[in-house]
């Protein structure tokens, strides 16, 4: 196995161009498991841990641009105020050691439906930036993740960053696991309120082949909020509407039975999470004390 260690992005892109079969590695939290258990035997590994450009984040044209190599720990500590949903999701990733190494770029690369970093990106319409020696392109995250463990990356391309708007309203992320820390999601739910556009962003994680937007639930709740003038009045969402929202989110899930849980439980619990998360986010929007 060849080990390639570029020192900057330009070198990395050239290396990827020359070795399109090379598997990129940064935190290694997925790739190393595959290697250690001989599930993958790549001809070459492209180590991106020295490429500092991937570790940068900042504002660009009114959007946050977050490098693919920013660790979960840094997302929590440095960007948590601007992206509270992603920060909540990051807190549920693995152990402190994993959070120090793991990155959202890795979640995008692996494209597992259980990746905790993905649902918040869907709920806020993030775009993924991919680069090659021929230039860069930006792909909506829902298009980038093309199937279970599949993404739209071309062989010569690397994931360089994602673009997402700073939170304009409350955001939530909740996940089900059969222990209280360090657990892969049985299912998960991300929510982002967008008061500026009147939209409610959602995404169901780990209950389908990819993360799934609950579009019907989003349309329903957008209608409820508009009809009742609730964005302006900051009045309570009727309990029945919260329940309906939960049911619609549960209906959007496409879960399976596996070792981590049954399809029926996943559908049930993701609906409960959706109802609760919207309740908490809306309370926060209304300024209810202790709701954040």
């Amino acid at each position: 196995m060849e080990f390639i260690q570029p020192l900057n992005l330009a070198e990395a892109l050239e290396a990827k161009d020359a070795h399109p079969e090379a598997v990129p590695i940064r935190g290694g939290t997925d790739v190393m498991v595959g290697l250690n258990f001989a599930r993958s035997r790549p001809a070459a590994v492209l180590d991106l841990s020295r490429v500092e450009e991937l570790e940068e984040w900042g504002l660009e044209d009114g959007l946050l641009r977050v490098g693919a190599g920013v660790s979960y720990t840094r997302i929590i500590e440095e960007i948590g105020g601007r992206l509270p949903g992603l920060a909540r999701a990051s807190r549920t990733v693995g152990s402190p050691q994993i959070r120090n190494r793991g990155t959202v770029g890795g979640n995008l690369g692996t494209a597992s439906p259980a990746g905790d970093g993905l649902p918040p990106l869907y709920a806020s319409d993030a775009e993924v930036e991919v680069v090659s020696t021929r230039g860069s392109r930006r792909i909506p995250v829902a298009d980038f993740i093309s199937g279970p463990k599949r993404n739209a990356l071309a062989p010569q391309e690397l994931i360089s960053a994602f673009y997402v708007a700073e939170a304009g309203g409350p955001q939530q992320y909740s996940k089900i696991g059969t222990r209280n820390a360090m657990v892969i999601a049985v299912c998960a739910f991300a929510l982002a309120l967008h008061p500026e556009s009147g939209r409610v962003g959602t995404c169901v994680g780990s209950a389908g082949p990819t993360p799934l937007r609950a579009e019907e639930a989003e349309r329903f709740m957008r209608g409820v909020l508009e009809e009742g003038g609730l964005w302006e009045s900051r009045g309570a969402i009727p309990e029945a509407a919260l329940r309906r929202f939960g049911e619609l989110v549960a209906g959007a899930a496409r879960p399976i039975d596996d070792v981590r849980g049954t399809a029926e439980y996943r559908r049930h619990s993701v609906g409960v999470l959706a109802r609760r998360a919207l309740g908490w986010a809306w309370d926060e929007y209304r300024g209810v004390r202790g709701a954040a």
């Binding site: 909740s174 696991g177 209280n180 820390a181 609760r276 908490w280």
Partner: peptide, 21 residues
């Protein structure tokens, strides 16, 4: 139940309840 650290609730850091249920 209200106002607890999530680590002192079922689900822990996964943020599933603030006392509901």
């Amino acid at each position: 139940l209200a106002g607890r650290d999530p680590r002192e609730l079922p689900g822990g850091v996964s943020n599933v309840t603030r006392g509901e249920g």
